[in-house]
Design a protein around this nucleic acid. Structure first.
Lengths: 121, 121
DNA sequence: TCCTCGCATAGACGATCATCTATCAGACTC
DNA sequence: GAGTCTGATAGATGATCGTCTATGCGAGGA
């Protein structure tokens, strides 16, 4: 809803700009914010890079700890967050846990940001 | 560097997957993580939506407080974070502070995520 | 020059987070 | 079945975060 629409010839000083009261998409914002938060840590981004560099975008945890210089429980914690947010899937193969990138989740989030950059009224 | 390359006919049980020790881009990850963190809050996403809905992607703070149900200092705090991360620019017009979306910043981040989704080896 | 208005800053507080050490659970080997 | 290995979980701790109230500061208007 537009409550004020100052034109270039409007000399009133108590009007700053159009007031647009369109309610922002609260639930959607909350959902995307949660996903963005899951990616907002350098260790998790590096984990995704490492996994993505493996054939098929799939890697086992045992090869993710040493290159990052953090402990195994820390990697496990981060992988859980990434899995809960839908960026990877977990699969047990024998004694090893494999995590696989879900490209669609990253792509969807990227497109959300690009759409937001194009939203101009 | 690849240290183990089990083929489908490799029956050794103590090999789980290729170990790829390519050092992840630490500085780049830290930078993108900082930007993602700036967007990882529902209030900030709604602020960006609100500003983007204004003509020219530009709005003054006075119209951003009420629709979001938070106090003015809280909006000011969030806008500072968004400005420091490069997603908006600030401009003083008379007594009003205008914030303008920087579409390129959102677009770059979106493309980073889409590239990451395509990284598969 | 004082007053008002718009917005930033300061400081506090409770919640969340990233990381660690210690431990547990499940799967394989001998 | 005992021992080993992989990875998850529990709990603690220090840091960061989101929000608030109170206050300061600069720009206009009277």
């Amino acid at each position: 809803m537009i409550t004020a629409l100052p034109s270039p010839t409007d000399h009133r000083q108590d009007v700053c700009c159009q007031s647009i009261s369109v309610a922002p998409p609260v639930d959607e914002s909350r959902d995307f914010a949660r996903k963005l938060k899951a990616l907002s840590d350098p260790t998790r981004l590096q984990l995704l890079h490492l996994i993505a560099a493996h054939p098929g975008g799939s890697a086992c945890i045992c090869h993710l700890t040493e290159p990052l210089g953090v402990t195994q429980p820390t990697v496990s914690h981060h992988m859980r967050l990434l899995a809960e947010s839908g960026f990877v899937t977990r699969e047990q193969r024998g004694k090893w846990a494999f995590y696989t990138i879900r490209p669609g989740a990253l792509k969807d989030l990227g497109e959300y940001l690009i759409d937001l950059s194009r939203l101009h009224g």
